[in-house]
Structures are given as structure tokens and as C-alpha cells.
């Protein structure tokens, strides 16, 4: 069987040359066995257009750099096999993030801001003793924390979120997932009211309108809907208690 010819419709825009209006450019390449979008995009850049901008680092769905809209669905280009796609493939950069050019967006600034706003560190007044034996954590609990920790910050959940697209201050599913991780962690001494000040508002959990595009998109399957519901329930209790 002869290989399929893949037709890519790729979004092109460089903010440095605004006189060239945003448009989609078409590229054709022959499909190869076990081809990922990572391979296909590199081929296009090597052989057809060296100016095409896109981000990659690990090509193993660990670094979270290559999130993009693939035929409308947000996912990682490195873990998407072309054989799972129709021969016409439309690629857009992730919405909601600062567009650097073509398929490349700046997720770093966004995530840095989210980390600061959710105060993503263990809050404790305990002084660290490097000679003491490490404190043990219950296996089930550590697995639960790990479930949230698996987030690779690709930004797919933020890109597809309608609220994040119209409310730039909304911390998104990844932000709420991050908070849930600290809520579970017994080493973090924040009480429910302190968490309420962080996420008990419309920029946090009560800004979520429940469209669950995040849950439908997470390329590594963090159970975002469960995390959102968990934080929502916790914050409802905290809101109820609050004077």
C-alpha cells in the first residue's frame, strides 16, 4: 500500500511582522510509519519552510512544550500519531497564551504567574533538619498527591477553557489542580480559610462554568474534573464557615 499524502494546514502569524496578516499555509508530505506530528513538523521545517515556528524539547510527552490545537483538539504534537488523524490536519497554536509566532506560544510566563498566585509551595513554619530521618507519608496519600503532580504544564486545559479565553485572570484547571495538590499534602499548614483566599473566588474555582473541555483535553489524563469538584466542595465548606 502506498503511503498517504498528508496535507497540513498550519496557522502562520509572526507578531514581529504584523503587516503579514494571520493565515493558514498548506504543506504536503508523505506519511511514514509510526510518524508523529513532531516528526512531521520537523520534516516540514527541514525540507519546505525553515521559518516555521513551533516548540519541542523532550518529544516524549514530559516537557509539555508542544501543546497545540490538532484539528481543534488540544494535545501534544509529540504523542500524536499521524495514523490516528485524517489526511487533512489543521494545526493552530494554543489559545489563551501569548502568541510568539506560528504554533509557538509562551506558556512559561502564564504558569509562573499562576504558581505565584496560588502560592505553590509548602507553607510551614517547621524548621528543616537535614540530619533527621525523612518523614514517612502514607502510600495512598502520596499516590493521590502524585495524581495531581503529574501535570506537565503543557497548557492544553487552559487553551481550551472558554473562561480562560475571556477572563485572563482565571487560574484554569491546572491552577486548581495545583491547589488541590497542596490541600492534600499534610506538610502544608494552610487551613481552609487560607485556601479560600487563594481560590474561593471567580478567578479561582467559582469562575469555572463547568464546560470540562479541560477534562476532555488533558493529554496525560490528570483527572481534572475530579480535582475541580474536590476543590469546589472544599471551598464551599470553607465559604460556609467563613464569618
Amino acid at each position: 500500500m502506498s503511503p498517504r499524502e498528508l496535507t497540513f494546514h498550519i496557522f502562520r502569524y509572526d507578531p514581529e511582522t504584523p503587516e503579514v496578516k494571520p493565515h493558514t499555509q498548506t504543506f504536503k508530505i508523505p506519511e511514514e510509519p509510526a510518524m508523529t506530528l513532531f516528526v512531521a513538523l520537523n520534516k516540514i521545517r527541514d525540507e519546505q519552510d525553515p521559518t516555521l515556528k513551533f516548540d519541542f524539547v523532550c518529544r516524549a510527552s514530559i516537557c509539555g512544550s508542544c501543546g497545540m490545537l490538532i484539528n481543534g483538539k488540544a494535545s501534544l504534537a509529540c504523542k500524536t500519531l499521524t495514523k490516528d488523524l485524517p489526511s487533512d490536519i489543521t494545526l493552530f497554536p494554543l489559545p489563551a497564551f501569548k502568541l510568539l509566532g506560528d504554533l509557538s506560544v509562551d506558556t512559561g510566563t502564564w504558569f509562573r504567574d499562576m504558581s505565584v498566585r496560588t502560592e505553590s509551595w509548602i507553607h510551614t513554619d517547621k524548621v528543616f533538619d537535614e540530619t533527621a530521618q525523612e518523614e514517612k507519608m502514607d502510600d495512598d496519600l502520596s499516590l493521590e498527591i502524585y495524581e495531581a503532580e503529574r501535570c506537565i504544564e503543557c497548557g492544553c486545559c487552559v487553551g481550551v477553557c472558554a473562561t480562560a479565553n475571556i477572563r485572563p485572570n482565571f487560574i484554569g484547571a491546572t491552577g486548581i489542580n495545583r491547589v488541590s495538590r497542596f490541600m492534600l499534602d499534610p506538610r502544608d499548614k494552610r487551613d481552609e480559610q487560607e485556601y479560600f483566599e487563594v481560590v474561593g473566588n471567580d478567578d479561582g474555582i467559582f469562575g469555572c462554568v463547568g464546560l470540562m473541555a479541560c477534562d476532555d483535553s488533558c493529554p496525560i489524563g490528570v483527572p481534572l474534573r475530579g480535582q475541580l469538584a474536590y476543590v469546589r466542595r472544599k471551598m464551599a465548606v470553607a465559604g460556609w464557615h467563613r464569618k
Partner: peptide, 21 residues
């Protein structure tokens, strides 16, 4: 402007629950 973003977004990501919103 937000209306335009919301409709364009729903079209772009082709997501059922976003349309139902």
C-alpha cells in the same frame, strides 16, 4: 469582544459542552 472570542473559540475547538454553553 468577549462574545466574538467565545463563539470563535467554540468553533475552533469543536467541543460539545462549549457549544451547549
Amino acid at each position: 469582544a468577549e462574545q466574538k472570542v467565545a463563539w470563535r473559540h467554540a468553533k475552533m475547538i469543536r467541543h460539545k459542552d462549549t457549544w451547549s454553553w
